[in-house]
């Protein structure tokens, strides 16, 4: 199993490098477009408009890492809160119906 996984990983790495080497110009255009879309999603980097092209790309990636980590932390916190609510108060069918009506 482990050997199979390792070989598959190496194959994927090889294929990705081949694809990147064959289409460098197209990939650069794609990267710039995708970076701009990603930057639009980030709340912090919108205020940081203006800067070097390479620096802005690195900052976008770093800000994206921080943003994903903060979102993961929020999901963890909300999961703990939901777990406490589910444990403390048993959700009856009436409350489930209330939640359904609220959500719909």
């Amino acid at each position: 199993m482990s050997s199979g996984r390792r070989s598959s990983r190496t194959r994927r790495a090889g294929s990705s490098s081949l694809s990147s080497s064959t289409s460098r110009s197209i990939s650069e255009d794609q990267i710039s477009e995708l970076l701009s879309k990603l930057q639009a999603l980030l709340p912090e980097s919108q205020a940081r408009n203006g800067g070097a092209h390479r620096g802005s790309a690195a900052r976008v990636l770093q800000d994206t890492c921080s943003y994903i980590r903060s979102l993961h932390q929020e999901v963890d916190n909300l999961s703990e809160t939901l777990a406490e609510l589910l444990a403390s108060a048993d959700v009856t069918s009436d409350q489930a119906a209330v939640i359904r009506s609220l959500l719909m």
């Binding site: 999603l41 994903i68 979102l71 999901v75 939901l82 108060a89 959700v91 409350q95 939640i99 609220l102």
Partner: peptide, 24 residues
Amino acid sequence: DYVAALEMQVRAMGQLTHDLASSS
């Protein structure tokens, strides 16, 4: 796509937490 999905998840879980807390 993942960031947009995570943002939606946080919004939905936050609202669900609020609804559960108020109903209980």
